[in-house]
Computed example of a mutant assay.
Amino acid sequence: MTPVELSRTVLCAVRRAVEGGELTVAVPTRAVVAPPGPGGRGDYATNIALQLARPAGRAPLDVAEILRPLLQETTGVADVEITGPGFLNIHLERATATAALVREILQRSGGMGMGISKADPGFDVDSGISNADSGIGADTRINVDSRIDVDTGIASGTQPIRGAQTTPATPTPAETPPPYGHTPTLVGQVIALRIPYDIRAEVVADTLVRIIATQGGRAEVHHVRSGEAVDLRPVPAPEDPAPLGPDAARWALLHPAAHDRPRITADHLLQRESNPLFRVRYAHARARALGRNAGRLGLDAVPGDVADAAPLTHALGAYPHALTQAAAHRAPDRLARHLVAVADGLLAFQHTVLPLGDEKPSAAHRARLALAEAAGTVLAGGLSLLGISAPDYL
C-alpha cells in the first residue's frame, strides 16, 4: 500500500465514521500520511484525528479511537497504534507493503530519471574492484578560471572530470510527473525565487526548479542586486567549486543545509565510503550491476515480500515526503541527505539479492532483485533532480 492509497484509506475511514454517526464533520479532501516522526511507530502516521478534533467537538484521542478500528479492518493494514496527543501510527503487512511499493516505483520508472548517463568504468561494480586512483588525478581536474553553467552543470570553457555527463535539461511541471505514492502539493502554483548573483544560490535555485516541478508547481528564478530582497541566500562557498568538476561541485553546494558553509575539498572526489556522493552513485551502479548479473542467471525481478530490508524499504517509502519537504522549505539538501539514506540501505542489503554458491534462485531472490531495482530507480531520479549524473558504471 502506497502513501497515496493509505491517504485514501484514511479518508474512507473518516467517511465511514461520519456515515455511521460517530463523527459529525465535513470529510476533508486530503489526509496527510507520512513516515512517523520522533516517538512514532509503524510505517506511516497521520494527524487526521488532530485535524478533525476541533470541528468534531471531540478530543483528538477520542477521534483517534473512533478511526483506529476502521483502519485496522483495511486489507494490507496489520495494526494501528495511537501515540502522543492523537497520532495514528499505521503498521502495514510486510508482503503487501513491500510488493506494492516496489511495483509502483518500477511502473513509474520512466518519469524518475532512468538511463541518465554512463561514465567510464573507473570502478568495476560487478567485481567491486577499483580500477583507478581514488584520489585526485590530472584527469579529474578542470581549470580554476571558470564558472559552472547551471543549465548544464559544466564549467564553461573547460573539460569535465572523467566520466562526467551533462546535467539533464530542466523540465517543466507538465514534463515532470509526481513521484510514486504522492499527491502533488503545489499544483498550478508559480513560485518566484529571487536570488543574489552567487554560484551557490544559482545551483540551489536551478535544483529547486526541478524539485518544485515534481510537486506540480513552476519556479521562476530572478537575480537581484545587493540590497534588494531575496528568497534564497544560502551561505556562499568559500571558493570557486568549479575545479571539483560538475557532479562533485553541485553535490558540495547542495548537500549542506543553506545555513552551513559548504566545504570545497578533494574529499568529494574520493572513491571511499566516507564520501556520501560516492556512496550514492556507487549504490546506483551496484543496483544496475545486480540487474546485469541477474540477467546472466536468468533471474527476473518480481515484487514480493522482503522481510530483511526495513531500512531500505522505509527510505524508499519516505522519498516522496522528502521531495515535498525539499520543495516546501526550499531545501534541496533534504533530498541529498535522503538519497544517502536510500544508498546506505541498499548497500547494506545488496549481498542478499542474488543466489550464493549452489543456492537455487527462489521467489525471495526475485523479490529482493525487484527491491534493488526500485532503489536504483529512486537514486537515479533523485540524482537527476540534483543535476548530478547517475552512471551505470563508476
Rank of each mutant, 00 (worst) to 15 (best):
P69Q: 01
A315R: 00
L394K: 03
V280G: 02
P332F: 00
L70K: 01
L269I: 06
P332R: 01
R250M: 00
E73D: 13
A132P: 08
A64P: 15
R68K: 15
D139H: 09
L379H: 01
P241G: 13
P168N: 08
A372P: 02
V209A: 08
D308C: 14
I154R: 06
P311I: 00
A375R: 13
Q215T: 13
W251N: 03
H338R: 09
L356D: 13
E359I: 15
I105N: 14
P311A: 01
R30C: 01
L92D: 08
V235K: 12
A374E: 10
T2F: 10
G110N: 11
G381N: 10
A138H: 15
E22D: 08
G357D: 07
R54H: 04
D139C: 05
I154N: 01
I66P: 10
L254S: 07
Y197Q: 11
H329P: 02
G295S: 11
L383M: 05
T29V: 14
Y44S: 03
G376T: 15
P60T: 12
R250V: 00
A13H: 01
V230P: 14
E93R: 13
A289T: 07
L6G: 07
P179H: 02
P28G: 04
A370P: 15
V10Q: 03
A331M: 14
